[in-house]
Write a protein that binds this DNA or RNA. Sequence first.
DNA 1: ACTAATGTTAGTCT
DNA 2: TAGACTAACATTAG
Length: 277
Amino acid sequence: MPELPEVETIRKTLIQFIEGKTISDVQIHWPRIIKHPEDTERFKLQLIGQSFQHISRKGKFLIFHLDDYDLVSHLRMEGKYSVHPKEEEKDKHTHILFTFTDGLELRYNDVRKFGTMHLFERGRYLKVKPISQLAPDPFEQEFNLSYFTEKLLKTRRAIKNVLLDQTVIAGLGNIYVDETLFKAKVHPLKASCDLSKEEIKNIKKYAKETLAEAITQGGTTIRSYVASDGEMGMFQQKLYVYGQEDMPCVHCEDTVVKIRLSNRGTHYCPSCQREGA
DNA sequence: ACTAATGTTAGTCT
DNA sequence: TAGACTAACATTAG
């Protein structure tokens, strides 16, 4: 379930394999993944002959920069990229294949087919959906305290839901939100508008810190995530609450609990993260 | 063999 | 308009 640190790890591994490579063919076995252009034949024709210049990331989106186009890719739950010789047998969940002139192939694999791809003429992706409404991530300059405070204070939704909202803060998913709130000692159900200045500061600080630490560990592997070179992440060993239900809290003698918040598994320590505190 | 749970986002409904 | 809910899917644990 790639969140920002996993996407960043994929970006770094993948660039080594595909930088400079030229696309000679594109195969599309599940067209619904391609959201733009509407005509998938056009998607294919636009890509043939293009070379990969570099890969960037915005929140959880990967952006492949080609000569004349940018390919915006979101992995959602289970999307994966890997590189293979084109004659190598492909697995049944490989849906999109980009063949290179040198005989290698970039493959997009997605068990649940939730991932998306948008191809736009160079530079346009910043001005249109899905990137246009994306908030800055905690590593970007615009993500400063006054911006964040204003966003958090203007809604009474539960803070956990607000932190999952990619138009407020980009990059956090279920795992890193639970970890961030634990470190900031804030209850996941607390109304966003009721947060103190101190709590907002802490959430901001720990969101960045948690993501940064996870990047150095190559991300978190819970069920299926691996980077594009097949390497697992290591951050799961540093999780304090996610997946730790019924385990002792690392800071006190209480037990980590798991509840359901808007249909998402939500983990916290009832003593360290007191409701209404 | 069935059911629930898994997590991300866009779109729909209230 | 804020905010809650659901569909898009496949797999696996219970």
